[in-house]
Amino acid sequence: MLVPALAIIAFAAAFHLHWALGGRTGYAVSLPQRADGSPVMAHRLSRWRPAAGAVAVGLVALALLLLGHAGRLPLPFPVGLARGALLAVGAAFVARAIVPNRYVGFFKSLSGTRWARYDTRLYSPLFLLLGALLVAQAWDR
């Protein structure tokens, strides 16, 4: 459970870091789109790169938390706190994949955009899998 979760986190962190540093690979499908193909958060595009960097940092922190909970790194706080954090993040990732929403998840109502196809085939399955792995890892120790 640990290695697949870390692999997904590393993959996602690398993409977000790539975008934060000015990379363009995958940029066109990095944000949810309206029916006309325009980004849902177009008014926030000026903060998109710093936000991608923040997500990359958050993912690295999640990987460190996961490693700490697994006993591979020392934790500076109680294991119960790490377990709770992993459960919360895992539940949030699972919810992101399965809770009906207009733009994201398996049950999104707007499914005809390029973003929506990527979300259904790649992003939502990864969110669901990573969420399940985090929850399982939290209860494993």
Rank of each mutant, 00 (worst) to 15 (best):
H18D: 05
L128M: 04
A132E: 09
L73I: 02
Y118Q: 13
A10W: 06
L2E: 01
V57H: 09
V29I: 15
G26K: 01
P74S: 09
L133N: 03
W48Y: 15
R96A: 09
P78M: 04
S109G: 01
A10C: 04
M41Y: 12
V55F: 08
L134P: 02
L81Q: 08
L45M: 15
S30V: 04
A132P: 02
A92I: 06
A91D: 07
V79C: 14
L67I: 05
S111K: 13
A7P: 07
A20I: 06
L64A: 12
G26R: 02
R141E: 14
F77C: 10
F77V: 07
R47I: 15
A20S: 10
L73E: 03
A63K: 05
G37F: 11
V3C: 11
P78T: 07
R83Q: 10
G105S: 00
L87V: 06
L128C: 01
A20K: 10
A63Y: 13
A13V: 08
H18V: 03
P125I: 02
P100C: 00
L45I: 13
V89G: 03
F11Y: 10
L2W: 07
A28W: 12
L17F: 09
A35N: 15
S38M: 12
H18T: 06
S109L: 04
G53L: 04
R44Q: 12
S38Q: 13
L122F: 13
R83K: 10
Y103S: 00
G90A: 03
G22E: 03
L122P: 12
A51Q: 14
H16G: 01
L110P: 03
D36A: 08
R102Y: 06
A14S: 07
A42V: 03
A10T: 06
V135M: 07
R49F: 00
L64Y: 14
A92C: 12
F93C: 12
G68A: 08
G26Y: 00
L59D: 01
L21H: 14
Y103N: 02
